[in-house]
Computed example of a mutant assay.
Amino acid sequence: MKKDENIRVGISIGDLNGIGPEIILKTFEDPRTLELCTPVIFASSRVVNFFKKHFKSKINAYEVNNTKDIVSGKLNVVNVWKENVTIEFGKEDPKIGEFAIRSLEASVKALKNNFVDILVTAPINKHNIQSEQFNFPGHTNYLAEQLNGDSLMFMVTDNLKVGLLTDHVPVKDVPNHITEELIRQKIDTVSKSLKQDFAVSRPKIAVLAINPHAGDNGVIGNEDDILLKPTLKAIKDKGTLVYGPYSADSFFGSHNYKNFDAVIASYHDQGLIPFKTITFGEGVNYTAGLSKVRTSPDHGTAYEIAGKGEANESSFKKAVYTGIEIFRRREEYQTYSKNPLKKATK
């Protein structure tokens, strides 16, 4: 098996009726990307050719039937299926969901076997992927099972990084999911990721409260006083620079987030609404805590514009670049961890 300097980027094609194929093609039409990496799309050459024709893409795609035959510095398409696929832009279709999962499973297998170095996932529809064989609320949970780790949804840009205590959990169930063990695990995952993936030597982390105004001394809930505050204090007493809980309503508007290397929100929308408001189009969804690197754009299938040629590829392109940067930083971190003197003499 290879290892050249050109990092291999495995790509799951996502929902074929959404904007995934369009933003993939637009990203790699820039010839500079092929100098930086070798993209490997897991789908079928037939379906990729359909999208090339539809979007009038001039990029050359190399058809391969085995990951061992990947051509460095070219856009590769690994044939995961041979059958015809009926594309109906903007339509939610369980059959299309099956193809999305086949692409994901093949790309993850290649990642686990080191035929690709990182994984970038195009958007899926979380509803039409469900089946008896695949029963996960999304990419993150599936990857955690496959790649043996404490996965964490980590939304990242250069200037803002937001992790989640709970992700795809109904709001009414959030307090029941937050435990001392979970808090410790997520803070540890964020801290380790900042060190090995983003080269932050001494991370400073903020945690947002569970309740409005951090509970107002028990007037609006007691979870922050009983659980979050003492757990954060115990973690901080052991040397981790963790602060909070902060009242979420003013935290981002006051620009307090700029004082920290990362922010951990208690639940999905508490973190993702301000993140996407501040960074939309530039953000990347990174799955921290895994043995491999996986990124994705910060948006969904965008059925309403699918097939129209209007999709903006900037977040997907950023996901590719971020994945490559993290992969390289991890290699450096592991090298320095084994030989601290090498870093000291650099």
Rank of each mutant, 00 (worst) to 15 (best):
Ser44Phe: 01
Lys109Glu: 15
Glu332Pro: 00
Leu290Asn: 10
Ser291Ala: 09
Tyr333His: 15
Gly289Met: 10
Leu232Trp: 02
Thr86Glu: 12
Gly283Gln: 04
Lys343Pro: 07
Val174Phe: 12
Gly307Leu: 09
Pro137Leu: 09
Thr287Arg: 12
Asn217Thr: 10
Val190Asn: 07
Asp197Phe: 12
Glu310Tyr: 14
Glu180Ala: 09
Thr287Ser: 14
Phe280Lys: 09
Thr301Phe: 04
Arg46Pro: 00
Val169His: 05
Asn125Glu: 09
Pro137Gln: 07
Lys68Ile: 02
Lys172Phe: 05
Lys109Asn: 15
Ser45Val: 07
Lys95Gly: 06
Lys204Leu: 09
Leu160Glu: 05
Phe275Arg: 05
Val77Lys: 01
Glu92Asn: 08
Pro170Ser: 11
His177Pro: 01
Phe115Ala: 01
Arg46Gln: 07
Ser45His: 15
Lys95Phe: 11
Val171Gly: 00
Met155Asp: 00
Ile326Arg: 07
Tyr336Phe: 15
Arg329Thr: 12
Leu111Arg: 05
Lys82Phe: 10
Gly281Lys: 08
Thr157Gln: 11
Val71Met: 10
Glu282Asp: 12
Ala110Thr: 05
Asn285Leu: 02
Asp69Tyr: 03
Glu282Phe: 05
Asn128Asp: 08
Asp150Leu: 02
Gly253Ser: 14
Gly163Thr: 03
Pro212Trp: 03
Gly14Cys: 11
Ala344Trp: 03
Lys258Cys: 12
Leu208Ile: 04
Lys346Glu: 15
Gln185Met: 15
Gly300Phe: 09
Thr140Ala: 03
Gly14Pro: 09
Ala61Gln: 01
Val263Glu: 06
Glu310Gly: 07
Asn285Ile: 06
Leu208Val: 02
Leu272Tyr: 10
Gly218His: 10
